[in-house]
């Protein structure tokens, strides 16, 4: 159900590694829970991020949710398309809905994150609560 090539956080962000670069977005589960993404607030390029700390905000009609960095590093690019089309997060959470591109300080941080199977198990446990 969740793409195998990504790593996941408890707070529902995904991370996709290519070399020392990591793309970040939110999972399909997160977007379907939030629904109607109407605004995504992203950091400026050059901002340095720390793992597990907020890097931005995603807003639905009713509420705002923090976005957490899956790895520490520097923001090298942000998805500017989200400014005019935040609904990309709903439509294609793993592609057009990507949010920031981070140059990692320490690739080993990725190992702390969940695999697709682990994330799936966590979601199922949450839903059965």
């Amino acid at each position: 159900m969740f793409p195998e090539n990504l790593k996941y956080m408890k707070s529902h962000e995904w991370a996709r590694r290519e070399g020392d670069i990591v793309d970040v977005g939110v999972s399909d589960y997160a977007q379907s829970e939030i629904q109607d993404v109407v605004y995504v607030e992203l950091p400026e390029v050059g901002t340095s991020l720390e793992q597990h700390t907020p890097f931005g905000v995603i807003e639905s009609v009713k509420a705002a949710f923090d976005l957490y960095a899956p790895v520490s590093g520097e923001v090298v690019e942000i998805n500017e398309e989200l400014e005019d089309a935040p609904e990309l997060v709903n439509d294609t959470p793993y592609d057009g809905g990507w949010m920031v591109r981070i140059r990692m300080n320490d690739p080993s941080e990725l190992e702390e994150l969940m695999s697709a199977a682990e994330y799936q198990t966590m979601i199922e446990a949450e839903e059965n609560e």
Binding site: Q35, D36, V38, S60, V61, K62
Partner: peptide
């Protein structure tokens, strides 16, 4: 019920 399909819809 807060929503059925989506708030915007």
């Amino acid at each position: 019920p807060v929503q059925y399909s989506s708030i915007i819809d």
